[in-house]
Amino acid sequence: MKIDFTVNGNPQTVDVPENMPLLWVIRDVLDMKGTKFGCGQAACGSCTIHIDGDAVRSCSFAAQYAQNKHITTIEGLSTAEKLHPVQQAWIEEIVPQCGYCQPGFMMSVANLLDKIPNPTDEEIDDYITNICRCGTYYRMRKAIHRAVQLK
C-alpha cells in the first residue's frame, strides 16, 4: 500500500504492507533509528512518537492510518539550532543511563507539556507510563520540572 505522510516536516511516500506497524516503517524503511522497539505491545512506550499532535505508541499504529498525517519523531523534536526544552532539561539533569527508553520518554513528556504546561507530580505520575529499567525516574521527574522552567 502507498502511503503519504510527513515526518519531521519532510514529505514521505512509502509502499509497505498496510498493517505494518509505523514503528518499522520509521526504523527500517526510513532508517531513522531514534524511535525504539521495546515490546511491540504498546506496553513500554519506547516507540512513542507524535501524530498530529498526540503521543502515539507507534508499534501499535498500522501504517495505513498514517495517510496524510504529520509525524514527529525524536529526531525532529529539536531544531538544528535549538534543543527542545525537554531535551535540554534531560541534559542538565543527566537523566539517561543506557538511554534506550529515553527517546520515548522525551516524546511522551514533550506531549504532556504541550497539553499541560506545568504539570503537578500527580499529573506526571498519571500521564507518564513508559518503562525505564535503569530506573532514571527520579531524575526524569526533576528534568520535567526543569523543562517547564526552560520553556
Binding site: 533509528k33 531514534g34 534543543l83 539517561p96
Partner: peptide, 14 residues
C-alpha cells in the same frame, strides 16, 4: 556529564 549524554538525548546513539 557522561560522554554519551547528548547523543542519547538526541536519539542518535545506535
Amino acid at each position: 556529564p557522561r560522554i554519551d549524554l547528548v547523543p542519547k538525548v538526541k536519539g542518535e546513539t545506535l
